[in-house]
């Protein structure tokens, strides 16, 4: 029986954000935006969804008088990501 792919992660932009965050300690919103080639509006919606799922921590502070958002993956996020990759492998193994 196939495991359902986590609907929160099975979306291109959210998966891209999680893949970036899994490989670094923390990243600013501008870095994620640049690397994922996304628009600020779309990205902030997706970041909010990941935050609500408890997959990432979002810190908002001021840097040189400008608002600055930093994102960091949580333990729940790492677990979910690992599960997602495991499920992907299952799909791919069957297809071989």
């Amino acid at each position: 029986m196939f495991k359902e792919l986590d609907p929160i992660l099975h979306s291109q932009l959210r998966l891209a954000v999680m893949s970036l965050l899994i490989s670094v300690k923390q990243a600013e919103f501008t870095f994620i935006k640049e690397k994922t080639n996304s628009t600020a509006g779309n990205l902030s919606v997706q970041v909010q969804k990941l935050k609500e799922a408890g997959y990432i921590d979002v810190t908002k502070e001021f840097k040189d008088n400008y608002p600055n958002t930093t994102c960091k993956i949580t333990h729940t996020g790492i677990k979910a990501f690992e599960e997602y990759v495991k499920s992907l492998r299952q799909y791919l193994d069957v297809k071989k």
Binding site: P7, S11, Q12, R14, A16, N37, S38, V85
Partner: peptide
């Protein structure tokens, strides 16, 4: 980057 849920497991892995 588009935000659709309609992509294959291979595409997922490539993206990651």
């Amino acid at each position: 980057m588009e935000n659709d849920n309609d992509f294959s497991p291979q595409q997922s892995l490539q993206l990651i």
